[in-house]
């Protein structure tokens, strides 16, 4: 019973936070609510025996990405933003589209069939600790994608600098 209750709490809060995020007029508020949302999602990850991912989620998203967002928002003119319309004119169409997709996905969920189970049972992960298990897989089987990902980050850094730099 207890897990269901916890899940219900997290589910309700994340949904509510998501709705709040997309409706705030002030972007700063959106970003701050986003922070709360990320913590809740990290909590859900803990539920799912993914401690390492939960940590990454907090450090990377909450610590790095959101700070970046905040910096950028501070550079912009907020006064104008607060006085202008927050939704586009055709917003009912967007909402209708979103709702209809949601509806069909819900109807389709019952058709979901789980595939065959892998070898990393909860007991095994608990025994060899989650970080170690992930590390082993990441640095052996997925070493090439991992290196590619690091290159992507490098390119992103260079790209961001080039784009944001003042033209002289």
């Amino acid at each position: 019973m207890l897990p269901q209750v916890f899940f219900a709490y997290f589910a309700i809060v994340t949904i509510a936070l998501s709705l709040i995020i997309i409706t705030r007029k002030n972007p700063v508020h959106s970003v701050l609510w986003m922070l709360v949302l990320f913590f809740h999602i990290a909590g859900l990850y803990l539920f799912l025996n993914a401690e390492f991912i939960a940590a990454v989620q907090v450090i990377l998203y909450a610590g790095a990405v959101l700070v970046l967002f905040l910096f950028v928002i501070m550079m912009l003119n907020l006064k104008e933003e607060l006085s202008s319309e927050r939704f586009i004119g055709e917003w009912p169409i967007g909402v209708a589209l979103g709702l209809s997709i949601l509806l069909f996905v819900f109807f389709s969920i019952s058709k979901f069939i789980a595939g065959p189970s892998g070898e990393f049972t909860i007991e095994r992960i608990l025994k060899e600790t989650h970080t170690k298990a992930i590390g082993k897989v990441l640095y052996t089987e997925y070493i090439l994608p991992f290196e590619v990902a690091s290159l992507i980050l490098l390119i992103a850094i260079v790209g961001a600098i080039v784009l944001a730099k003042k033209r002289t």
């Binding site: 994340t14 949904i15 998501s18 709705l19 995020i21 997309i22 705030r24 972007p27 959106s30 970003v31 986003m34 967002f69 950028v72 928002i73 912009l76 933003e81 202008s84 319309e85 927050r86 939704f87 586009i88 917003w91 169409i93 967007g94 909402v95 589209l97 979103g98 709702l99 997709i101 949601l102 996905v105 819900f106 969920i109």
Partner: peptide
């Protein structure tokens, strides 16, 4: 799914590009 669709909807209806990135 619900969170994803909320994200989609937010992307579709907000004017502000920062919110769209969020």
């Amino acid at each position: 799914t619900v969170i994803f669709i909320i994200g989609v909807t937010g992307f579709l209806i907000r004017r502000n590009i920062i919110i769209m990135l969020i």
